[in-house]
Design a protein around this nucleic acid. Structure first.
Lengths: 253, 253
DNA sequence: CGTGACGCCTCACGCGACGTGAGGGTCAAG
DNA sequence: CTTGACCCTCACGTCGCGTGAGGCGTCACG
């Protein structure tokens, strides 16, 4: 099979048939062939072009702009590089948004009413606007949301402050150990690890050294967790993981 | 000054006047006051509500859904937490996109033409009509199985490591809940159950809470599955089943 | 007191990127 | 030769506003 019909292409690249019709109508992606019955037939080249369109669309680029870009004489790699850069920018914007939300949350926890200044500072300007796409079902059903809700619900504002302070202290201990040049197997690092374990054990759920190892590995494997540590200090995620393993080792026997 | 006009609000929160008119028209944000000349006057409370709307809009939520959410009895902090969780999910998706682009780039650099397979792997949600024998007896022709096949097919060894680690984390959560003495109906246990469901849902096949119940019952009924849980901790199989049912209950409403 | 300039008001049509039928031809399998 | 899945072309609907048009309100300046 060397060409594909609308339905096949649609499923392959996860777009609707109507979308393909639309792209044909506006000349953004006109299939190279038609069967005698008038069926649209897409070739390999058409698919490659469509793939570029799909990625650009995910990044919220208007169709006419995409058309202009694709009319240029850039090759596939050029487009991929551009797309990559765009995604990175968007990632930064989203991280900005997260920290704005965090600041707002902190304020809400302390029961301070939102002042006009705050609103402007937090959500007014600074963002180039428009981020998302898709993901309708995920709304309100995300695990992250549910867990965050059920866990934090039990805490009062004061508790939250306390927990946050403890967490900061633990992180500070890790950072201090790292910056002192001490290896992850040093006493200081292992002590920080033990502090970390007890913090979670006290505040959230029973956590023995074995499970602590699992958690440590996750800090490195899950980019979401990795990020929070890497933001504190480069190399911290791996350092924390190693320290936790070292600490678990010394607590064996 | 205790109230603001459209223009002031618009500049403060970086929206257009027309947008405020629109929100008024559809009843999403009706200003609490009007001057005798008919000018819209926004109060502090109006601004707080608008700020929530603005953030939800940045996350591409449709206006009617935002309205539903804001009609609920959640407070500002609840909304902020939900928004945070959503942004995090979105961040994950974008990171996925980056790595997909990277893989495509790597291939393009090596001058290998993009095959249909690649396109599907990288940017589509592919489908497969493969069938297996030994599992077919167990699962028959269920959609779940087909999805599992097509989803797991794309995993590399590294991916599998990751999946395995996730599974371990879920099991550890169950064990932790059990050993803490918390009942299967506790939040900790239910959260573990939800984690379990999400893990399967993400990695293998779509799994709603109803089907999750069926799976839970099988864990107890089928000695093969019972064994894997009982090996981790005595009584765990039944505990897991009860936790899953409790979790499904709370998600029914 | 008059006069702009500017901000506010209410219609009301336009637009981008499709969604969603209606009405009808095509094609492989049984 | 029927059946059902898939394809076609209109063509109107939707969502979240953008963009004037035409007119009133308010305030500083002359």
């Amino acid at each position: 099979m060397t060409t594909w019909t609308v339905g096949q292409v649609a499923e392959l690249l996860d777009v609707t048939v109507r979308t393909l019709h639309h792209y044909d109508e506006i000349g953004l992606l006109v299939p190279s062939e038609r069967s005698r019955a008038g069926y649209r037939l897409y070739t390999d080249e058409d698919l490659t072009r469509l793939q570029q369109v799909v990625v650009y669309r995910r990044l919220e680029m208007p169709l006419d702009e995409i058309a202009t870009l694709l009319r240029g004489n850039e090759d596939a790699a050029d487009h991929l590089r551009r797309q990559r850069a765009t995604v990175m920018t968007r990632l930064d914007e989203l991280r900005e948004l997260v920290s704005a939300i965090d600041r707002a949350l902190e304020r809400a926890m302390n029961d301070q009413p939102a002042s006009t200044e705050d609103l402007k500072d937090l959500f007014g300007d600074g963002f180039t606007d428009e981020y998302e796409q898709e993901a309708q079902e995920r709304w309100g059903e995300t695990d992250a949301w549910k867990q965050s809700r059920s866990r934090t619900k039990r805490y009062t504002k004061a508790d939250w402050e306390q927990v946050k302070q403890e967490a900061d202290a633990v992180n500070a201990a890790f950072v201090a150990a790292l910056h002192s040049g001490a290896p992850a197997t040093s006493e200081a690092a292992m002590d920080a690890a033990e502090q970390h374990r007890r913090h979670i054990d006290d505040r959230f759920y029973d956590l023995d050294h074995t499970f602590h190892r699992g958690l440590a590995d996750m800090y490195v494997a899950d980019p979401r967790f990795t990020k929070t540590y890497e933001d504190l200090a480069p190399g911290l995620a791996a350092y924390v993981r190693d320290a936790i393993h070292a600490n678990a080792d010394r607590h064996r026997e």
